[in-house]
Amino acid sequence: MSDARFTIAKRELSGLRKEKTILLALAIQLFIAAFSSFLVVGLVSLYDPGSVEGYSVDVAVAGEAADDLLAVAARQDGLDPTRYSGPRAAYASFQSGRSDAVLVANRRPSGRIGVQATVPDENVRTTLVVVQLREALRAYERAEREEMAGRLNGMALELPPEQRSNPYYDFTYTVLVPLLLFLPVFISGSITVDSITEELDRGTLTLLRVAPVSFARILEGKLLAAALLAPAQVFLWIALLSVNGTRIANVPALLVLVGAFSLLMTAVGVAVSLLAPDRRVAQPVYSVCALAFIGGTATLAHGPVNTVARLAIDSAGPETTTAVAAYGLFAIGIYAATRWLIERTDAAAL
């Protein structure tokens, strides 16, 4: 490592600091984080009735098979079934607002039970009511199925016990955390493209050629500055998430992974801007590369997003470690290829 590269890298970073744009980047991420927790909290309260204190769904039950249904429904938390003499009375209570939903259960000639469920078409409650009804009806289906078990070849497995949990627990780790980790990486690559194409455009690189620094060193310095930026930002993020109560496991491995991706994307950024020195071309091409990288690897068993999720949620195994190492090697390979490209490029021709 020569000093020239670090000098260039320092100059790049101080440029960012002076423009104060890095503050904007942090603000964006803070916004995303706060916003996502809005979504998570909002969605949880929408779909998990338990999170709404003291709320239970009043259901009017009627029909000839109502008694069985009532027995099952009464066992469920958050559901308050009431027996009505007939469908007419049940609908009347629904219309007057005394009940949130109506279930009319009748046995059909085929032996199947037809349930006519009616829910209000009005507001947030609808989703809540439907979720609760589905739970009750599935329990009812299981009970009825058991009664007819003799007619079945196989047996349904008993369900694992139910425990109240955050239904968006894995959303935090599989969507939010990867989003927060990859955004700095992509922005790093984008900065590299900007920085190089701008110098080429303004012609300031030509001035540097009289300095005792080679063109390759300059580019490597720029690459280094951008590649270091992302892991630093990610470290801040992880600290912030931990303070906020979201535990992130395997922090060193995550930082290595982010460092590898950051090296990869900045190397791609350098390569793109050498191949297409016009920013109007380089930026879209780089964006396509970034999108292709994430979209293309999404189906892989150990894709980048999935690897981050497994590390962060603490479900990593030996195969995850192998994946991290493989990504590291891949990034170094791309970096080496980019260096080869840099050496081959004639600065004067750009």
Binding site: T118, V119, L133, M148
Partner: peptide, 20 residues
């Protein structure tokens, strides 16, 4: 996969949304 469809799915639900 069961042959006896009625025993496998003994409950049929019709869900409707109504404007109160």
């Amino acid at each position: 996969a069961e042959e006896d469809g009625v025993a496998a799915f003994p409950v049929a639900v019709t869900l409707s949304y109504e404007d109160r």
